[in-house]
Design a binder for these strands. Structure first.
Lengths: 112, 112
DNA sequence: GTAATATACCTCGAACGTCTAGGTATGTCA
DNA sequence: TGACATACCTAGACGTTCGAGGTATATTAC
């Protein structure tokens, strides 16, 4: 189980990263993430849909209704150019924090 | 600048990690982090003190008032055994999320 | 034909977390 | 005496997740 704070920090970069791989709809994102993470991340619908709406409102992603061949309607999302830039920012931020943690977790250097 | 969500996710493991290196007081933690992170993380007092109180309430750290030789009183914190275990959990969580992101950010494998 | 299950979307409100802006108090230096 | 650094604290605004609820359609089993 991953803490709420970590979920909050990783959800945005994860969704943007997934969408960088091409068009995908909400319900599929949820199940893709469970698969990709090997069950570590168990996103629920109540978590993901509001995030998708916020990302669209902020202009990072854009949605389009489509009909699948089995008659169900799906809302497909894709990354905008602005969203692609945001993903790069998110990557940089994540990596900079990760580097600080890595430094703290590294075996202490010997000052000799 | 690092997003609020990332701050929220990294504050706990960072503080526990810093305390794993020995006793330290709140005000010092704030300035240590700015130095360690090279200014990437600009923790404010309003962020750190409530976190320290929560960590103590949860039993991960313990505090003790001490007088410095210049007459100022400082509240020193140190890690408990329980807190050391919690730090290991936090490390694992962070790394598992980091691994998923790394996978997503890796160049796509060619399926040929 | 109808019950159960899977797909696929949505929202409300409780709970929890940060952070701005304020506060207190002491020591040092000009 | 004023400015600044040190060193602690908290109230309230704001933002976020997530459980629990809702709608609707397609498929499968009985």
């Amino acid at each position: 189980m991953v803490s709420k704070a970590l979920i909050a920090a990783s959800t945005k970069p994860m969704i943007l990263s997934i969408l960088a791989g091409g068009e995908i709809y909400g319900y599929q994102i949820i199940h893709s993430m469970i698969e990709i993470s090997g069950g570590i991340l168990e996103w629920s619908e109540g978590t993901i849909y509001p995030v998708l709406h916020r990302l669209e409102k902020d202009g990072f992603i854009r949605s389009q209704w489509k009909m699948s061949n089995n008659g169900r309607h799906r809302k497909y999302y894709r990354l905008t150019a602005f969203g692609r830039k945001e993903l790069e920012k998110e990557k940089k931020q994540w990596m900079s924090v990760h580097n600080v943690l890595s430094k703290l977790w590294a075996p202490l250097p010997s000052f000799d």
